[in-house]
Design a protein around this nucleic acid. Structure first.
Length: 431
RNA sequence: GACCCCAUCGUCUAGCCUGGUCUAGGACAAGAGCUUUUCAAGCUCUCGACACCGGUUCAAAUCCGGUUGGGGUCACCA
């Protein structure tokens, strides 16, 4: 049975690269009907923190990567020591006491040989271990080193496929040697290409957010982020960009993963997020938006009209890049007065439109039914009577009502704003 | 520096394994236009790549070698 693992170190947040590694592991496990194991590599007592464990677990849950088993390396120190002593007994390792260190370290005597490793993504990778120095297994403070704990765990946890970032390629020969020395069966390796910054180099904070949780906070949808991450070094083929995870599980295989490092492109993530937002269930989307509106004091916790809110969400849905945009773009529905963009006012409301606005209000008042079609009809009637172009009046009205030059169709805006608020906002510009 | 990995439009990629169907396809971005109403939505169009050199072959984006470029790793961090 396929058993894969994702092994983050709780010394920081789950970042984009880690999320992608988790995705490919999880995906492979689900595709092969195997197990996805989570292992917290918290051997560094000083840098490992519970808050990071929580953060990583929460991000993983949010992305939808449920794990079948979970382990903490800090609870397995006796296992590592036991294995190290095995090597000591067989003469494959030796101890060393440094004057400035508390205790004895156990060190692996690296044998000189050429190693050819198989990799599911790369072709054969060759190494000459002559360039590798002897490896510390157990540090003088009694904690295991990364490479040693990793090998012992992967072997004892029966990991069949080690799927991890490219940056671990040079660790692999060291680990292969350890597998051999300990008499463990070698897993299959798959090294994923790294995700890079726009300017080159490994993805870092320098050019933007790196933590998965930050993207969540910015208003990206988990399935959209997963879809984007999936496209970085894998393709479903047939010129497809949008693919949901269930379908990806059916199509995914490790051997189809690219070897080339991919640049993280926020614009494309934005496009994908918009695609998901557009097709999202308005009711569910409203659930995500409501807390944001409450926080901004736009609505009151238990005093708002849900159906009305969902209608407004629908209005903006095709345009949203991130969920958070809603609160900014639709603010005029919730504020007593629109947040006026000075440039917009200067451009469209400088001219005196008292007569036009007055006539429009009269027409709205005369309406038998205040619905979108009737509102548009009355507007069209007015401009033909005045003999002007529709846009000469549409833009000023939009700015007067919303404070912005951009937004949904004007007649929908008027309808959902309501007759009274529309009149009130237009009246402000009648001298 | 040593070792390792990688190399198709600005970006993500399809094609490469199993050479000919590739005057290299799609998407994002950018630019232009359309939409008797904006754009941040939609539609149409445009721009734009096989890093270079050599080899194998009737034929190379595809196979081989080298060069160049980019990236990664070289800790008693993980």
């Amino acid at each position: 049975m396929v058993r894969v693992r994702f092994a983050p170190s709780p010394t920081g947040n789950l970042h984009i690269g880690g999320g992608r590694t988790a995705l490919f592991n999880w995906l492979y496990a689900r595709a092969k009907d195997g197990k996805f194991i989570l292992r917290l590599e918290d051997t560094d007592k000083l840098r490992s923190q519970q808050e990071f464990v929580d953060e990583i677990l929460n991000s993983l849950k949010w992305l939808g990567f449920n794990w079948d088993e979970i382990y903490y390396q800090s609870q397995r120190f006796n296992i590592y020591r036991e294995q190290a002593e095995k090597l000591l007994k067989s003469g494959l390792a030796y101890t060393e006491k440094l004057p400035d260190k508390p205790g004895e370290a156990i060190i692996f005597k690296v044998p000189q040989q050429k190693i050819k490793m198989q990799d599911l993504i790369h072709s054969g990778i060759e190494f000459d271990t002559a360039v590798i120095k002897d490896q510390v297994l157990i540090k003088s403070d009694g904690t295991p080193t990364y490479n040693f704990a990793c090998v012992v765990d992967d072997a004892t946890m029966d990991i069949t496929h080690v799927i991890r970032g490219d940056d671990h390629i040079s660790n692999t020969p060291k680990q292969v040697l350890l597998y051999e020395a300990l008499g463990f069966k070698l897993p299959k390796f798959a090294h994923l290409p790294l995700i890079m910054n726009i300017g080159g180099g490994r993805l870092s904070k320098r050019t933007g957010a790196t933590a998965i949780s930050e993207y969540r906070l910015m208003g990206y949808l988990a399935p959209a982020l997963v879809n984007y991450l999936l496209l970085l070094s894998w393709s479903p083929g047939e010129n497809r960009e949008l693919i949901d995870i269930k379908e990806a599980i059916k199509l995914f295989d490790l051997t189809d993963v690219n070897k080339t490092a991919a640049t993280f492109d926020l614009k494309k993530l934005g496009w994908i997020n918009n695609q998901y937002l557009k097709n999202a269930d308005s009711d569910k989307l409203a659930d995500e938006i409501i807390p944001m509106l409450i926080e901004k004091n736009y609505i009151h916790k238990d005093g708002f009209d849900r159906n009305y809110l969902v209608s407004i969400v629908k209005l903006f849905q095709p345009r949203l890049l991130v969920v958070n945009d809603f609160a900014d773009w639709a603010d005029f529905f919730f504020l007593d007065e629109p947040n006026m963009d000075p440039a917009a006012e200067e451009k469209y409301l400088k001219k005196d439109l008292s007569r036009e606005f007055t006539l429009f209000i009269e027409r709205l008042d005369a309406l038998k039914s205040f619905d979108i079609a009737s509102i548009e009809e009355s507007f069209r009637g007015l401009i033909s009577e005045l003999g002007i172009e529709s846009k000469a009046l549409i833009h000023p009205i939009r700015v007067a009502l919303t404070g912005k030059t951009i937004g949904p169709g004007l007649f929908e805006v008027i309808y959902y704003l309501g007759k009274e608020r529309t009149k009130e906002r237009l009246s402000k510009f009648i001298k």
